[in-house]
């Protein structure tokens, strides 16, 4: 939801804390789950991620989550899905050139990042997403990466 998404950017610092605290636990839990169940629980886990992140960030399930590096503003909500924004077309009021009613996702991202402890991560260069990951879970990806298999 758009308004919740804006709230998330305003509270990027708190969300960063929550992420930093609970993400290792979540990954640990998922690692155990993956070990025990293989891919059998992928569908429900993916669904939970989609609902939770969908509510807070209008997550598009790109499968390559960058929220912690983009001020808690999901770059896939940019009409051009720019991963290193903003583009040059931001309106004077900070809104999107394609969707004038929407605040530019990347204006929000830099704003959110400025509140975060690790906000400087936004300055690192991101490469384009792997389109094969569309619709898959970033959480499971992290768990599997730590297990050393994809």
């Amino acid at each position: 939801m758009y308004r919740v998404r804006l709230w998330s950017v305003r509270h990027s610092r708190q969300l960063e804390w929550i992420y930093g605290t609970f993400n290792p636990l979540l990954v640990k839990l998922l690692r155990g789950t993956v070990k025990l169940f293989g891919t059998r629980l992928d569908k429900p886990i993916t669904k939970v991620e989609a609902v939770a992140k969908g509510f807070f960030f209008d997550c598009k399930m790109c499968g390559d989550c960058a929220l912690s590096k983009t001020g808690m503003s999901c770059p896939m909500n940019c009409p051009k899905t720019i991963r290193n924004g903003p583009c040059g077309g931001v309106r004077e009021n900070g809104h999107c050139e394609v969707k004038p009613e929407m605040r530019c996702v990347w204006v929000a991202a830099w704003d959110g990042a400025s509140r975060m402890k690790g906000g400087d991560a936004i300055k690192s260069v991101n490469f384009a997403v792997d389109n094969r990951g569309k619709g898959t879970s970033s959480w499971l990806k992290m768990a599997r990466e730590e297990l050393g298999h994809d």
Binding site: N84, P86, G89, R91, I122, K123
Partner: peptide, 20 residues
């Protein structure tokens, strides 16, 4: 485009392009 928001971060965006 140094002439559009977010003005303060336009130079950071430039830096990213140089890094790339």
């Amino acid at each position: 485009n140094p002439f559009a928001p977010p003005y303060a971060n336009r130079v950071d965006q430039f830096a990213k392009k140089v890094a790339a």
